[in-house]
Write a protein that binds this DNA or RNA. Sequence first.
DNA 1: CAAGAATACTTTGATATTCAAAGTATATAG
DNA 2: CTATATACTTTGAATATCAAAGTATTCTTG
Lengths: 148, 148
Amino acid sequence: MHSNHDSLNKILVKLFNDILKIEEKYLCRGDFSDLTMTEFHIIENIGLSGDRTMSETAKDLRVTSGTLTIGIDNLVKKGYVKRQRDHEDRRRMVIGLTDEGLKAFRAHQQFHEEMVNHTLEDLSPEQEKVLIKALFNVDKYFKKKYHA
Amino acid sequence: MHSNHDSLNKILVKLFNDILKIEEKYLCRGDFSDLTMTEFHIIENIGLSGDRTMSETAKDLRVTSGTLTIGIDNLVKKGYVKRQRDHEDRRRMVIGLTDEGLKAFRAHQQFHEEMVNHTLEDLSPEQEKVLIKALFNVDKYFKKKYHA
DNA sequence: CAAGAATACTTTGATATTCAAAGTATATAG
DNA sequence: CTATATACTTTGAATATCAAAGTATTCTTG
């Protein structure tokens, strides 16, 4: 019982401490050495959802809109994101990826795909489902308990 | 095939983006409102391993030793960590938790335990093993590929 | 044993990230 | 048409982080 819980706890702590840093080392170099991990996450979030407003994106990323404004400022300067006023509601800004932004998005996706492939490499389809269910459990739990 | 991979990718991205922030909101208040998440992670790392040197801890946390010096400075000031020179090798510092530090450590552990309990709540022991194996796969993969 | 090299840690200066709160512009409700 | 709400930006302050230079101690080697 408890040894399973302990193992899981330890591995989760380790993964959560490590993955972001490894991801950063790997992604923020070469073609994308001008990007920080924070910026990659903004790019990823925009890319997943097509054109979005600032506030939707900020909420999704769990940062204040002031923080996102700064992030988007930088990404626009660096040429990864375009920002335009919404014609329907001129208070809103619509943000989306440039071609360069899309390239960065794909590089990030590829990193994740590779990670996922190796995670699943010696699991049966049945076992894959177990894994996904467990991870959804975590997510569900957080949503419920911390209003998230 | 691919739908499993996609689901896993999406849920991983979401979890990794969210958990640290939720953890911060939850832990860094009440008795521990003077602690930041970075400081909680230092405390956790020291607690897991008993007394340690600065460089071991820095390596484990994947920060430079300069960064850790600053973190430990703050934790000593706040009364969560004690730092003493090693008598065998006077270049080394030995760091450990104070009583207050242990309390913070336990609060952090409890947060993780609760998370793990809910993650495993409707899995059989067999399925728990699958989950742990998969997560070890991720860890192994990173260790191998990125020298980690 | 006496340099010189290596190790362990700290300090310094610079940059990035973030927030809360105040500010600006636009839209909506009464 | 005013008052209020919404969407975003700006500002000022705090934290986190690194690389590189600095200090103290130990190890190595001729």
